[in-house]
């Protein structure tokens, strides 16, 4: 018994010596354990960026429309992996067709984008795309904010939880960079692919027509140039986007019977605005 126990003890140690370093490194790199404090910092940063988005385009003041877009977002959020976020949506008062998002769950859809939509599934598709930029922390990773533990999400706490001018300067610089990504540079192509494909998975999981974004892009790609000029500048081509969305629908088996477009409810809220 004693010999068996000793043998077992030695053999238990051997793998940890051989593989433990490997396992720890992998866990450290892959496991992004995010604390409540990290999320609060993410929301605080995103809130400031949201205010700057509204500095460029004011809020379209319509309470029933604002409630409606928020209900769509909150309902989608129940099907996603950021349950701690209160996704908050505003409609921007501009004819430009576009959507924006800031860390922490702030989402914006333009009035122009909504005017070009025909149903709730298309609205859900655009909102879901922006939600995925938030969920996947695209701006966080792009800003290369790192805390002491390799987790990009923890970087916000590190950056804005401290005091002093150096920290504040870094914070304002990060805000300016975030706005630059949103309005000038655009996201990386891989991030746009992720937002389109995961956004489509999200709306399909919620029960909406998974082809909604395809329908919407087919419609607006031939539209008025001045309304889509910024959208085209900041995103890959519509044809590319339609292509990878269709691939995602096929690969994940998202199609089928029973998905909703939500035409009636959408018209009830939107069309009566005139």
């Amino acid at each position: 018994m004693t010999k068996a126990a000793l043998a077992a003890a030695i053999l238990l140690l051997l793998p940890s010596l051989a593989f433990g370093g490997d396992l720890r490194a992998r866990a450290h790199a892959e496991l992004q354990v995010v604390t409540t404090d990290d999320v609060k910092s993410e929301v605080a940063f995103g809130r400031e960026v949201a205010a700057m988005i509204l500095g460029k385009y004011p809020l379209y003041r319509d309470e029933s429309l604002t409630r409606y877009v928020n209900l769509v977002a909150r309902m989608l959020a129940r099907n996603s992996n950021r349950p701690e976020l209160n996704f908050t949506v505003g409609v921007l008062d501009t004819d430009m067709i576009n959507g924006f998002s800031a860390p922490g769950g702030y989402i914006f859809v333009t009035k122009g984008a909504i005017d070009a939509m025909d149903d709730e599934a298309e609205l859900a598709g655009v909102i879901a795309h922006e939600m995925m930029h938030v969920s996947q922390r695209h701006i966080v990773k792009e800003l290369n904010i790192h805390g002491s533990d390799l987790s990009p999400a923890a970087g916000f706490s590190h950056m804005i939880g401290g005091a002093g001018d150096v920290v504040k300067v870094a914070f304002v610089k990060a805000m300016d960079e975030a706005v630059n990504i949103l309005f000038e540079r655009g996201y990386k192509k891989q991030d746009e692919i992720e937002a389109d494909t995961l956004g489509t998975e999200l709306i399909a999981t919620a029960g909406y027509d998974p082809e909604a974004l395809v329908r919407y892009f087919e419609k607006i790609k031939g539209g008025q140039e001045k309304e889509t000029v910024t959208l085209k500048k900041l995103h890959p081509s519509f044809d590319e986007r339609i292509g990878w969305i269709k691939q995602a629908v096929e690969k994940n088996g998202l199609g089928g019977e029973g998905h909703k477009k939500g035409v009636e409810r959408f018209n009830g809220v939107i069309r009566k605005k005139g």
Partner: peptide, 26 residues
């Protein structure tokens, strides 16, 4: 920003649930 947050803050879980049910989504 405060205006849109105020509106969003009035939406509770029950209303979200009803919204989903009425739309045949989840």
């Amino acid at each position: 920003l405060v205006e849109m947050e105020k509106i969003a803050a009035t939406i509770g879980d029950r209303e979200i649930g009803s919204f989903a049910d009425e739309g045949g989504v989840q």
